[in-house]
């Protein structure tokens, strides 16, 4: 297939600027059984994340007597791609992604509160269009907060990279396939630490540093949406059909 120009007059195929994100929606608390959950629509990506825990750690040989073990499982649905039907369950790529995501949460989850337990994070890509591991991690971070797991920060991220010789953020699948370098990045806004970093392709050091700067900047929007999704669950709402609300006494609300 002949490659189209990815950037024309500073605009990309879908009209975005180089550092613009695709439309992003996040909703917390979407499943009933799981302790915490979140659903993310990022461009055409649709990812569902769920958390169970802290709970008894089985198999017992995984148990750590001093802190909770964080386990992550990233998988893609067989119907997630516009292209061919895929197979269910994990494969080598998803196993690697599960590992690097786990390492992010091992950093921020305050696991010492829950020795001998397991915190299980499940991420399912229901529809994929480039940048799925970052979308999955975005959802997982919200699901962990939704489950009440204590963390140092809600991790956010953006995949950055190089297309048509320029550094840009947030690639769709087409840009992914024909770009020159793909750099998923996850970070803690609060501490400025990079917690997930992978890269392929060829870059100069300057290009890399520029990419990181863009990642820090662009991920701020992601962070805002994650926080909003969580707080929205506690916006003043009353169960319907019971009694009307009376004005508050003694407490003032600040949102």
């Amino acid at each position: 297939m002949e490659k189209m120009q990815l950037i024309v007059n500073g605009k990309r195929m879908d009209g975005r600027g180089l550092t613009d994100l695709r439309p992003l929606k996040i909703k917390a608390g979407v499943l009933n059984k799981a302790d915490g959950s979140a659903y993310v629509e990022w461009g055409n990506n649709k990812v569902l994340a769920a958390v169970y825990g802290p709970r008894e750690c089985i198999p017992r040989h995984d148990v750590n007597p001093y802190h909770a073990v964080v386990r992550c499982r990233y998988t893609m649905a067989p119907f997630c791609s516009m292209e061919e039907h895929g197979r269910s369950g994990p494969n080598r790529r998803s196993t690697e992604i599960s590992k690097v995501i786990r390492e992010v949460f091992e950093n921020v989850v305050l696991a010492e509160h829950f020795p001998k337990t397991a915190i299980d994070v499940y991420m399912e890509v229901l529809q994929s269009d480039g940048g799925t591991r970052i979308a999955a991690l975005t959802a997982a971070a919200v699901a962990l907060a939704d489950a009440g797991i204590p963390m140092k920060d809600i991790v956010c991220g953006v995949a950055v990279g190089k297309i048509d010789g320029q550094i840009a953020a947030d690639f769709g699948k087409y840009e992914d396939n024909f770009g020159e370098s793909d750099i998923p990045v996850a970070l803690s806004q609060r501490t400025g630490e990079v917690l997930l970093l992978q890269m392929d392709g060829l870059l100069t050091k300057d290009e890399l540093m520029k990419a990181l700067d863009i990642a820090f900047e662009a991920s701020k929007q992601v962070s805002e949406l994650q926080i909003r999704a969580l707080k929205e669950r506690y916006a003043e709402k009353e169960a319907k059909g019971i009694a009307p609300a009376r004005p508050a006494e003694g407490a003032q609300w600040q949102q």
Binding site: L31, R73, Y122
Partner: peptide, 17 residues
């Protein structure tokens, strides 16, 4: 036709074959 009982769906579902 294939069915997956995702581990997220229930505390009783485990990943695996």
């Amino acid at each position: 036709t294939n069915a997956e009982l995702l581990p997220m769906a229930s505390p009783t579902f485990e990943p695996g074959p």
